[in-house]
Write a protein that binds this DNA or RNA. Structure first.
Length: 548
RNA sequence: GCGCCUGUAGCUCAGUCGGAUAGAGCACCUGCCUUCUAAGCAGGUUGUCGCUGGUUCGAUUCCAGCCAGGCGCGCCA
């Protein structure tokens, strides 16, 4: 499904190519042409600067080039007017009735409207959160829980086969400390130095002892507490509407021989060497600032060895693209992970993509809440949801690009005002639902057979249609750039445009006014808008309420 | 020292194939509900887009160098 703008852009591209072929223009035709939606409404429905770009090679001034293309563009189907403005911009105004056909497209595609095929046949492994199973998920994980899940939905909408995966670090020193900490708490002994101090350890200890009478060794405590803690994380993520297809255990990686297999594969590729009794991967061949140890002098595997094997494992399980979502404190991993990909014989520019999320600060009562494990002021995902609800938390976390540090203001998120954009968007949806309930009650005919696009000629209707038409491009770019926040920002714009339409364009008949085609047309336009808002919110994992 | 990220209105932040007069919300004023959800709409005020150069018809956007802030640089996990 290609949008009207895409079709138009392709047609114009063909016109340019033709002009060059028949000698009207010199130079080379661009592969594609960008049609943008002008900020200024006087500049038409779409605009392109193609004439300015072609001018130099053509040896003509930009306005001449634009003039050359003008009449041919005006003759394209659906175009009503073409103006040349400023230094040579081509401003295109669409035929309004033709544009309104979009309502049919949206309503007949319903939940599929906006989906694309850019990633058809591509399998994407999306790994995020990947916390240690040694405690509750906290704010640092929360951003990824929301953004990662939303990105997964966006990638699926672009046609990808997405595997959302959580890597459980259930092996190594942290797990042992965790077991010892729970054991100490259960036995009334002091928690070991470097151990886990939180109150939750005591709760875990009680629960473990209650369900495992006679438990005594730290290994048993570790295993029992691990199960409980992991289940707790899974439960919270479930409440947070964050789905994982695979919970991948680091232990299983070792037990299955995948680590050895990964090392073999790297050896075959010739980037492994020995030095000082250790086994190294020559990541400096591919941009890392130092080589990395895989097997220590004492024979133990490093954590890096697991990471490496895990990457290879993902690829062998069918992932074409492995996306990693890491916290800012792990940004040092970018180079080495990309180097791993290259060392395994892959193309790091395609097969691996590392996203780094900056930190989230939290404000409450006008003050920043300092997060400290020691002081016990860690905010967990569970607490955040209790405070502000799933929708507000998810939406707020998603609406900012991940590479900006963000501040969450708890008081704002709790408020039912415009400061809280999720309500602005949801309100538009609920408002439409209310209108459509009234439409049904008044028996205004709404089927597409009753839809007359030529009724929709008001500026507000035109603006709304134009915004609805943008949705597929937004989804496609969000997927391509791995930036789900674009969907949220778009929905805010769409909601605003709808509210403007609503203020100026009455949907229901007033007073004794007879029901006519205008009412049916607007009701369908409302339904189409509601569909797009619902589609967008579902990509964010945020509910679309019928009533508020 | 090296690397990643950030610097846009009083505050929180949008703005990637370089485009026309740089946007939104909040805050501060002014209007709009005896018929669709006022959690809304319309209007007003706010800017050396960190600084300096470069690339060109044109730069908040691309490049280089500075300045400021955050974070990271283990045979730790």
């Amino acid at each position: 499904m290609s949008s009207l703008a895409d079709q138009l852009a392709a047609s114009i591209q063909a016109l340019v190519a033709a002009a060059i072929n028949n000698g009207e223009l010199s130079g080379t035709a661009p592969d594609s042409i960008v049609l943008e939606r002008p900020k200024n409404r006087d500049h038409g429905d779409y605009a392109t600067s193609i004439a300015l770009q072609l001018a130099k090679a053509a040896g003509k001034n930009p306005r001449e080039v634009a003039t050359l293309l003008q009449s041919a563009i005006a003759a394209l189907p659906g175009v009503s007017k073409v103006d040349i403005a400023g230094p040579g911009f081509i401003n295109i105004t669409l035929d309004r009735a033709n544009q309104a056909e979009l309502v049919r497209t949206i309503l007949s595609n319903s939940a599929k409207y906006g989906h694309g095929d850019a990633l058809n046949g591509v399998t994407v492994n999306l790994e995020f959160i990947s916390a240690n199973p040694t405690g509750p998920l906290h704010l640092g994980h929360t951003r990824w829980a929301a953004v990662g899940d939303a990105l997964g939905r966006v990638l699926k909408a672009a046609g990808a086969n997405v595997v959302q995966e959580f890597y459980i670090n259930d092996r190594g020193r942290q797990m042992d400390l965790f077991g010892q900490s729970v054991q100490a708490a259960a036995q009334g002994l002091p928690i070991p130095e470097d151990g886990y101090q939180g109150e939750y350890i005591k709760d875990l200890a009680k629960e473990v002892v209650a369900s495992n009478p006679g438990i005594s060794t730290s290994e048993d405590f570790r295993e029992a507490a691990y199960k409980v803690q992991l289940a707790q994380q899974q439960g919270v993520l479930n409440v947070f509407q964050t789905h994982f297809d695979i919970w991948f255990s680091e232990r299983s990686l070792h037990e299955s021989g995948a680590v050895e297999h990964g090392l073999d594969k790297l050896r075959e590729q010739g980037h492994v060497f020995e030095l000082d009794g250790a086994i190294w991967l020559r990541t400096t061949d591919f941009g890392d600032d130092k080589d990395r140890v895989l097997v220590k002098e004492n024979g133990e595997l490093t954590y890096f060895a697991s990471d490496t094997a895990y990457y290879i494992n993902k690829r062998e399980r069918g992932a074409d693209i492995c996306i990693y979502m890491l916290g800012a404190d792990h940004h040092g991993y970018i180079h080495r992970l990309r180097a791993v990909s290259a060392c395994a014989g892959d193309n790091p520019d395609y097969n691996i993509h590392v996203l780094i999320g900056q930190l989230v600060k939290i404000m409450e009562g006008g003050e920043e809440v300092k997060l400290s494990k020691r002081a016990g002021t860690i905010i967990t995902l569970e607490e955040l949801v209790e405070k502000v609800g799933v929708d507000a938390a998810r939406y707020t976390l998603i609406r900012y690009p991940v590479d900006t540090p963000m501040v969450m203001d708890i008081d704002v998120l709790r408020s039912n005002t415009n400061e809280n954009p999720v309500y602005y968007v949801q309100y538009a949806h609920a408002r439409i639902a209310a209108v459509l309930r009234n439409v049904a009650e008044l028996k205004i005919p709404t089927g597409l057979e009753n839809f007359d696009p030529s009724q929709l000629t008001h500026d507000r209707e035109n603006e709304l249609l134009g915004t609805l038409a943008e949705y597929p491009r937004i989804v496609a770019s969000a997927a391509e750039l791995r930036e789900p926040h674009r969907v949220a920002r778009y929905l805010e714009e769409l909601a605003g445009v709808y509210h403007g339409f609503y203020a100026d364009c009455r949907v229901l008949p007033l007073g004794d006014e007879a029901v006519g085609p205008i009412h049916s047309a607007r009701a369908n336009l409302c339904a189409a808008t509601m569909q797009v808002i619902a589609n967008g919110l579902s990509l964010l994992g945020v509910s679309a309420p019928e009533r508020m």
